[in-house]
Amino acid sequence: MRLACVQLGVEGGAIEDNVAAAMEAVREAAADGADLVVLPELFDVGYFAFDAYARAAESVAGDRLSRFAAVADEEDINVLAGTVVEDLAASAADGIEAPADEGLANTAVLFDRSGERRLVYRKRHLFGYGSEETDRMVPGERVPMTDIEGVQVGVTTCYDLRFPEQFRQMVEAGVECVLVPSAWPYPRVEHWRTLGRARAIENLTYVAAVNGSGIFDSDALCGRTTVYDPWGTTLASAGDEPTTVTAEIDPDQVAAVREEFPALHDRR
C-alpha cells in the first residue's frame, strides 16, 4: 500500500481555505499513485484556534466531511480526514453512535475508495498543559480498526502517542499500521521524534506520524511528519514546511519482523 502523509500548512480559523488546500493535496496524492492519504489533526480549523471550534463543528455525516467522501470516490483513493471538530449532537441526530449526546469531539474519519465511511475514531487522550482541549472536547472510548488495501489499519491522535497501552491494545487486535494525525508543537519536538519511533519498535508495527505545519500566535507546529517501519527505521520524513511524505506499507514485512524478533510472544 502506497501511503501519502500530508503535512498541511494550516491557517488558524480559515476553514474554507484549509479545506480547499486539503482537497487539492488529496487529488495530488491520487495523481501520484497513492492508495491512502492522511491529513493532520484539525486540519480544517487549526488545533490552537480554540475559539473557532464551535463554528467548525459538524456531524460526521455533515457537508464538509461529505466533500472528502466525494473526493475519495472521484479520485479512487482512501482518505483519512483526520481530524475535524465533531458536533456529537448533530452526529447522534444523523444516527451515528457517539460517546455522548452532546458536546464536541476531536474526530478522525476514514473513507474508502468508494467514499464509504470505514472508521470513525475520536481522540481518547485529551491534552491539558495549557491547552483548552480538555475543556472543549469529549474524549472517545473506542479504538476501531479496519482493513485498507489488505493492511489492518488503526488510528490514534497526537497526544495518544504518550499512552503505549492504547497501541498495545491495537496490536493485540491485529493492527499492522497505525496512523497518527497530529498537531504537535515545537517545544516538544524531541518527544515527537522519540514517541513515534518507540511505538513502532515496541509493537513491531508501522507508525505514520502525520503532523501539520503552521504558526498560531505563540505556538508553531514542528512538522517532521515521519513514517516508521516495524523495526522503527525511518522510511520517509519531512522538515517543518508543508509537504507530502510517501512510503510503502507492506503487511508481509510486519509478519516477517514479528517472526524474526518475537518480542510480542515474550510478554509476561
Rank of each mutant, 00 (worst) to 15 (best):
L179K: 01
R188T: 13
V109G: 07
C177F: 14
T146I: 02
V189P: 00
Y129N: 09
E202F: 09
G82E: 05
P144W: 02
A89Q: 00
D135M: 15
G154E: 07
R118F: 05
E172C: 13
F163T: 01
Y129I: 02
R124S: 02
S114V: 01
V171E: 09
D160M: 11
R168K: 11
Q152C: 15
G82I: 05
A200Y: 11
Q166P: 13
S91C: 04
R199W: 05
F167W: 08
I201A: 02
P144Q: 07
E116Y: 12
S131I: 13
R193V: 00
R113A: 15
G95N: 12
S131T: 12
T156C: 14
C158A: 10
V120W: 11
E132G: 04
M170H: 14
S91A: 04
L161T: 01
H191N: 15
N203V: 02
G128Y: 07
Y129D: 06
F127R: 08
V189C: 05
R113L: 04
G150Y: 14
P185L: 12
S91F: 03
V175Q: 02
A81S: 12
E149T: 07
A173P: 15
A200S: 07
Q152P: 00
A105V: 01
Q152S: 14
V175K: 03
H191L: 15
V85M: 03
R113W: 10
A98S: 13
G82A: 09
R118M: 11
A105C: 02
R199L: 00
E190H: 11
R162M: 13
V178N: 11
R193K: 04
W192S: 03
G150N: 12
L126T: 09
F167N: 10
D87S: 04
T194S: 13
V178P: 15
V151C: 06
A89T: 03
R136A: 02
E202R: 11
R136M: 14
S182H: 00
V109E: 14
V85L: 06
P181Y: 04
L195K: 08
R142H: 03
A173G: 05
